[in-house]
Design a protein around this nucleic acid. Sequence first.
DNA 1: GCTGTCCGGCTGTCTGACAGGTTCACGCCT
DNA 2: AGGCGTGAACCTGTCAGACAGCCGGACAGC
Lengths: 223, 223
Amino acid sequence: MYRPLARLSAAEAVFNAIRGDIESELIPVGSKLNSEATLSQQYGVSRSVIREALRSCTALGLTVTRTGKGTFVVASKVANDLTLGQYSARDLTEARPHIEVPAAGLAAERRTPEELDVLRGIVAAMATETDPESWVALDSSFHATIARASGNRVFASVVADIRDALAHQSETLNMVADRQHASDVEHQEILAAIEAGSAENARAAMAHHLEAVGVALDSILNN
Amino acid sequence: MYRPLARLSAAEAVFNAIRGDIESELIPVGSKLNSEATLSQQYGVSRSVIREALRSCTALGLTVTRTGKGTFVVASKVANDLTLGQYSARDLTEARPHIEVPAAGLAAERRTPEELDVLRGIVAAMATETDPESWVALDSSFHATIARASGNRVFASVVADIRDALAHQSETLNMVADRQHASDVEHQEILAAIEAGSAENARAAMAHHLEAVGVALDSILNN
DNA sequence: GCTGTCCGGCTGTCTGACAGGTTCACGCCT
DNA sequence: AGGCGTGAACCTGTCAGACAGCCGGACAGC
């Protein structure tokens, strides 16, 4: 009575199998999948098919693959903010300096006294904040406020988007513990430059800060 | 001042490029991508890399690939119900008969007079309904009511899930125009069997209905 | 004890090949 | 002339084998 639909391709079948194992947590988050060669033998298909299946898992954010090491499970289910979180950590880290550094320079020249007050308040609050999530929220405000203080609506809007995306990434939180104190110091330097009205120093301080953050994120992504 | 993150693999780079073209609607929805061999030449990489990149697009629901025909753009952005819409049209069509057919049989034996009234009302409404979306909603109610009438909470729950997922798929709507009248007739036959208390006839009528729907969906998926 | 080097394992990519699905035009038959 | 089958061209799906580059650990030398 029942006629099946078109056959699944081998790659789809393997993808379904692996995805099922991951979503059922049969393969727990954090663990390493078998090597492509091993999976190839296990499923009785060529390595090309395995790679395409893993590529699907990676596209859905279930796994990450690192050259020379293997493929690792990073989530047991598909994140539902795949749409909104359209920026990858790499995209963000790469783009930030190009936007936030010039924005900091403009902010040093154009900031109002009120904006300075806000920034001082944020920096002070961060120094005593111990909860990582709250600290990240303050960090977002700090950078967003500087972008607004640049007087350029494009910078303000883009930085707001970037901060929003960053706040939704687990790497951000993982990084806080190591970077919190260092970031506080760097923030103070940025603030000082903006207070002094030195665009050059503000750009340098912001560049230094983002560089350090980028390095930290990089090491987390490749550990 | 700025050190880039780890290089993107060729497959990731090509994926980003194609995804960008799709999301910017530079490659409009409905159009066909160049063949894998052609893309291979265009991007200067091997066909394997192209296939992995396209596999990523397909995993995100941006494209579908059909053997012997090519790869087609089906969405300009990643759907945000990738999580919820965890069932593919294929999954649904494949599973439905195994659940709804026995449920119809049980419903014929266990339905209450009140449930019969509800079903009659739905069938009557569908016969005069012209708006496709409203018709689909009634269709969902019809199948869900039968599942509830089976007296088996598992069937009721599963069918509700299935109907919910189906209602969110564009293929469902595309199919209505062609199938509406035929489905109305088939629904009447199912209702008649359930009214008569004939489990055998109810199963047969439901099986026939789902078979016809499956064929229609199949032709849409492979047109 | 520390360091540097080497090796085995793994991913990233390429090449070439063949099977099977799809389309279309050409030519044959009616 | 019109319908029909058939084959050629093109496309995706899969396979096997190969090699470069990255990574981790073992092992020898200082």
